[in-house]
Computed example of a mutant assay.
Amino acid sequence: MVQKEISSYFTEQNHSQPLLIKAPGRINLIGEHTDYNEGLVLPASIEKAIYFAVSPNESGTIQIETFLTQPEKITFQLNGNHDKYARFWGNYFKAIIDILVAENYPLKGMNCVFGGDIPIGSGLSSSAALCCGFIYAITKVSGKELPREDIALIAQKAEHKIGLNCGLMDQYAVLFGKKGNAFFLDCKDLSHSYIPINLQGYSWVLVNSNIKHNLAVDSEYNKRRVSCENIVKLVQQIKNGVTSLRDVTVEDLHHISEKANETDLKRAKYIIEENSRVLNMMQALTEGNAEQVGKILRQGHWAMSLQYEITTPELDILVKIGEELDGVMGSRMMGGGFGGCTINLVETNKLDTCITALLQNYRERTGISAEYYHLAIDDGVKVIA
């Protein structure tokens, strides 16, 4: 187990028992790119996670080692200064420490070893787990607790400093997840509730296309945000009280169609309809209607492909293969886009046959070997030892 390796390595290096913290990745059942439009989302935290082994030190520094990629150690001064680093994760930690220093948070010296089993670039929000877990660890060592809502905002601000202008869905899912439940979040007022996943006889599976994405580098994410903002500005000219696409209807789009860019209109329509799919999914899960859940997954995927244009040919192929297989109720690309995983709802008694066929057909059609992961819905960030 990854957490045992991290804990043992920490003890070996620091000659003390650490506090062990689990920060889960997340799936999103439906509701992609709606969060930064004050829309609706339906994620869930999962068993795969990043683990942090931490303890206080008297050195006046925050010393961090990783098991995540190649071994590397970074030392941060409590004023935010740091040694040079080569790995991407150092940027996240620097951003977090800079924010906490600017907000006069009482940082204390800390030793930290971290690593995990969330596949990087697969759309499972490894960056949100990294940020939320690290901030939570700091609060445990420094002794000044922060509300989880505040941790989410700091983690979001850190991602913005890195260059990804994300919403709050990932952070809230990582922090507030509950075992066996989907997490409904209204991104307009941040109200949330839990939706039991009542699907006996069915399994959730992720299939990693092995097409990697890096949204912070790839500006396509931010381009879509600009498209949404363009439409909001046009609707504001004809309608009062509009602050985001949450306040815009399909009828509003018709009224501005002559002024608006065609691509912007198409993207805005996707967001409006995706909010409706979230509500439909909540009802289907509550009723235990697996057929309807699968239908909504498929609708969501092809809307992302044709309207929001954030899938890849490989992800489209994975979904098409699933549509041809008896036992796959439905699937869609999950995450910010341009790579990563599909999430699939599969009849449990046909799971092995479906996965074997899916992987084989995908390799035959693309020449790429995909990977799959069984999903278990777990709790949000927590101390586990």
Rank of each mutant, 00 (worst) to 15 (best):
E5D: 13
I6Q: 14
S7F: 09
Y9P: 09
Q13G: 06
L20K: 01
I21E: 02
G25E: 02
I27K: 05
S45K: 06
A49Y: 03
F52V: 03
P56L: 07
N57Q: 12
F76C: 02
N81G: 14
K84E: 13
K84R: 11
A86P: 04
R87V: 09
R87P: 06
V113R: 05
P119T: 13
S125T: 01
S125V: 00
A128H: 00
A137V: 04
T139V: 02
L153A: 15
A173T: 07
I195Y: 08
N198H: 14
G201C: 11
Y202G: 05
L206M: 08
V207D: 03
A216K: 14
V217I: 10
K223R: 15
R225L: 01
V226L: 09
I231N: 00
L234K: 12
K239S: 11
L245Q: 03
K259M: 06
E262C: 08
D264L: 00
R267C: 00
K269H: 07
A284V: 10
E287N: 15
G288C: 08
N289G: 05
N289I: 09
E291K: 13
W302F: 15
M304V: 06
I321D: 09
E324A: 13
V328A: 06
G336R: 08
G337F: 05
G339C: 06
C341D: 04
T342C: 09
E347H: 05
T348C: 07
T348H: 15
A357V: 11
N361A: 08
R365V: 14
T366I: 13
E371N: 15
Y372M: 09
A376M: 07
I377G: 01
D378R: 11
D379Q: 10
G380C: 02
K382A: 15
A385E: 15
A385V: 14
